[in-house]
Design a protein around this nucleic acid. Structure first.
Lengths: 195, 195
DNA sequence: ATTTTGTTGAACAAAAATGTTAAACAATTT
DNA sequence: AAATTGTTTAACATTTTTGTTCAACAAAAT
């Protein structure tokens, strides 16, 4: 699975070769087709797993009891950011595949949307409760989630451009700073006393 | 050529099919191979043309006589921005191909670097002359060009993210505003009296 | 008018990639 | 111990894609 993920991310769906995946993974070519009939199925499994891990890291936040919603939001931003740190070229890959293979866009809608909707629903409930107590501003959970996703994605999309302009930059420091800035930005967004 | 460009941009090098390109272009399959022995050669021709047009739109600025260098820089920003407007998904495509096909990165270095170096040399000469007169700050032409490229690219890379957050946004207005902002940003950068 | 060049269609060769199958054997489960 | 499941090798079938060739004909150049 690791090798398959690498090959797909590096070469795209149409560029990746099942034979090479098998070879690099040290298993026989037949094996791949024994478990996954087609390249398409292998791909869906790999991407499904990725989404699964994203979902886990994000939705377990809502399982934490007795945590104020503000802290949960912070945790959400940080976990999403960390997921991106571990998968820095997943966004490029997805954007590309969505354009290159319309059927993949379908799959994404099918798989990713329910996860998002689930998170939106949970978040909305907690936000509404907290808003009643005056802890946060009254707001749309979907808007807030979109803000979180885009502000984080942004940091990773800009990174390569920055590094091409400043080739000697310290990525570690950059990511650390960006994550904190993003947290602050989102905190301001839900703070009832600002703006 | 138009169809080939579309197919390559939409499906990537490995996803594009020579048969489909021929079919869609209304020419016979044989014809493609009559003129371009291989898919690789066709690709190189298409991308070469693209680069050529970028080069023309950019370097003809230096041919304009009796134009102050500050105005030439403005013209440079605007022309590069316009080129990107006409080729909005070229950046995504190039970033992707560079990662997916290392040999393409080589080709880019071979083809694009000389163009850049040529522009840098011309610009440096004019900047130096203008700096002596106190019209602009003393500065590196390569740095300035990198600033122009990255600030413009940025506007186009952010666009899809913005539109996903605000699906009803007015692109026409956005691009118009961004171009002017970028011009201003670069003008501030060469202004000898600021900072 | 003749030669060269461009173009097509159709068939086909070659290569590359995917997907299948069967025989043999190892590992695991029952 | 027997049955099931996992795995490999190696061959092979299929499909997809790329690249070639040739005969015929049109268009353009000489």
């Amino acid at each position: 699975m690791e090798v398959a993920e690498e090959e797909f991310l590096m070469k795209g769906f149409s560029g990746a070769r099942t034979v090479e995946i098998a070879e690099r993974a040290g298993v026989s070519h037949s094996m791949l087709h024994y478990y996954y009939k087609t390249k398409e199925q292998l791909f869906e499994h790999v991407m499904g797993e990725k989404l699964q891990r994203l979902k886990e890291s994000v939705t377990t936040v809502f399982m934490i009891e007795d945590m104020p919603v503000v802290e949960k939001v912070v945790e959400l931003v940080v976990r999403h950011f960390e997921f991106l740190s571990e998968n820095p070229d997943l966004p490029r890959f997805i954007i590309n595949e969505v354009i290159v293979r319309p059927e993949y866009a379908e799959m994404m809608k099918r798989e990713a949307l329910p996860i998002l909707e689930d998170a939106v629903a949970r978040l909305q409930r907690e936000l509404d409760a907290a808003a009643k107590e005056g802890e946060v501003r009254t707001m749309d959970a979907s808007t807030l989630l979109m803000d979180i996703v885009s502000v984080n994605l942004f940091s990773f999309i800009v990174a390569p451009i920055l590094s091409s302009v400043k080739p000697d930059m310290d990525f570690q420091a950059y990511y650390h700073a960006r994550c904190q800035e993003n947290v602050q930005l989102i905190l301001n967004r839900i703070n009832p006393d600002i703006k």
